[in-house]
Amino acid sequence: MTFLSSVFGGPWCIAVYTYREGIRRKLLIGFLILSLFVIFGSSFISSFLDPSAETDIDLKLIKDICVTAIAIFGALITVYISASVVPAEMETKVIYTVLSKPVRRVQYLLGKFQGIQLIILVNLLLMGGLFFIALYMRQGIMPTLLLWSIFLTYFEFLIISAFTFAVSCAATSPLVPTLGGLFIYITANLTEYLKDVEHRAGQTGQFFDNLIGKIASALYSILPNLQNFSIKMQIVNGQPNDPPTDVLIPWLVLYSLVYALAGFSCAYLVFRRKEV
């Protein structure tokens, strides 16, 4: 018990502090309010639709807007908070008071990363919760599929946050890791196109085309495919209590954990000998 508390007590304490400090950030609150506003406001959009149109088109539209809002605002919150936590502590010198205590650098990083995950989870639950209630009130059916979607979205964000966090450990300001995080999010959602680019580029046989093909191939091999985590179409078109299809949830969780571990390991390698 003493061993466990000495190893994990420090990181957990840092995590709670990070969470309490993080949820007060104005930009993050702004993103959250905006997303809740979009989710709440989507219900009103349906009233502008043509009444003669397909009967459930308004519901599909609401679902589409809400799922997209959760994905986009959630990703923005994830990138912003993962990119800024460590550089902000360096700027305010709080890091000096923490690392001068008997806290190992890996414990510090673990605490910060846990705190980031708490913030992401709470925000995701708030956004998803509102959508869940709205959907339940509209259809009167428990939207269990949405719960699976929120669950998978969290693991998608876990990957983005791990790599953004790794970049932030090398940076002195949040700008570069924010850009890096957005790059990872966008490209990792477009990996299928990378495969396409690889095929097309290889057809001409020219040097630059081959080069582009190889870069696309390398990115395709390295980057996670975040599209795997999306069950948006099923939510929009299916019944709210359908089971998720075409996704192997345990494998996706494992896939996400492996990438998150890789990202966290990169963060530690960078931060281990970083001079602060």
């Binding site: 007590g9 420090g10 304490c13 840092i14 502090y17 309490r20 400090e21 007060r24 305010t92 010198k93 709080v94 000096y96 008071t97 923490v98 205590k101 008997p102 806290v103």
Partner: peptide, 20 residues
């Protein structure tokens, strides 16, 4: 050094104490 505004004096000390 900056100490977070949203914490009370004793909370700050408890936080740092836990790190020890």
């Amino acid at each position: 050094a900056y100490y977070p505004d949203f914490l009370r004096g004793e909370e700050i000390l408890a936080y740092y104490g836990k790190l020890y």
